[in-house]
Design a protein around this nucleic acid. Structure first.
Lengths: 171, 171
DNA sequence: TCACTCCATGTGATTTTATAACGTTACGGA
DNA sequence: TCCGTAACGTTATAAAATCACATGGAGTGA
């Protein structure tokens, strides 16, 4: 039902720090999530689907309470657990990530693939790009092995200036 | 005044994931902070000093409100900004770090040295060890260069099981 | 078909974390 | 010594997250 809005958006928005066919990525990501949930026996309920669609549309980090507003507008419940539960499902199943530094959530850029995400957060425009990290390699992996620490999950977030904001600063 | 308490503690506590002379590290870290602040013209006021001493004594991640309790007990103000301001000072000047994943703060293990910290957080006992990261190297650095993103600061936190908890699990 | 169970949802209430705003104090330079 | 600024203390409020409990609907097995 909200896919009408999506089609109305410009086809190319800033994403990561580049541009792409946004409407297309939304619908394909939703379809992939449908398929994956069906395969895994997960219940991709209306709230969960709507929450993912919102994250995909925004294509930026969205706070839980902003998500709650959007869900309420879409006719769902209006109390915090509604948003937190939907987001928890999306994160647990790899459709979204939490950006700890921002206390906010973003759609996964590589759903399906098992990965350790890393993020680049622009402190001027708040845009967020997702990259891959390799926790077991590098200094952290060395330290963990040396200490006998078993890594299960990593949070890797870089804060700085994105290319387009860097241009503005120089201008 | 609280240094008496410090001396009363056992000299070897778990730290990082090892043991060391804890009372000694507290006093030397405080002395180093004194010196550094004097050199840099920073005001190492009583609340700030007390806050750092608390972090050093605990040698674990301490939440802002727990810090506030401790500061109040020590005779300082009792409202949240008291703790947040002291912690902000410590973080801004490299005496402490914020663990984003825990919304908590920990004394820096390598004060003075310019560094990009990385943390290993045990999800069973909550202990935290500090290591070094090298943001410009590795997958994240590559991605940043490729995207034209200028990294200013990084959050690197690994969650998992520390060696001593791993033993308990197997037992 | 019916009853049962499990999981998801909706809601009210509360807890935890963090910041805004403002007056007062006190340190340090001119 | 005076002045400007930074630090402090307090009240109040905002933002983020969780708890607890009742309701409801999708499957399962009898």
């Amino acid at each position: 039902m909200t896919s009408g809005d999506t089609a109305a958006k410009t086809p190319s928005d800033p994403v990561g720090f580049e541009t792409h066919d946004h409407a297309g990525c939304i619908s394909s990501a939703l379809a992939a999530a449908d398929t994956y949930c069906a395969t895994e026996g997960l219940r991709f309920t209306p709230v969960r689907r709507q929450a993912l669609e919102i994250l995909l549309q925004e294509h930026r980090a969205v706070g839980a309470y902003e998500m709650l507003d959007r869900l309420r507008d879409a006719g769902f419940g209006s109390q915090p657990p509604v948003a937190y539960r939907a987001l928890e499902f999306l994160v647990a199943n790899g459709f979204a990530h939490k950006i700890e530094r921002l206390n906010a959530f973003i759609a996964c850029a590589h759903p399906g693939a098992v990965h350790s995400p890393a993020f680049m957060i622009c402190r001027m425009c708040q845009s967020v790009a997702e990259a891959q990290s390799a926790p077991s390699r590098g200094a952290l992996g060395d330290a963990a092995r040396a200490a006998g620490f078993q890594i299960e999950r990593t949070v890797v977030e870089a804060e700085g200036i994105c290319p387009s904001c860097a241009e503005k600063v120089e201008a």
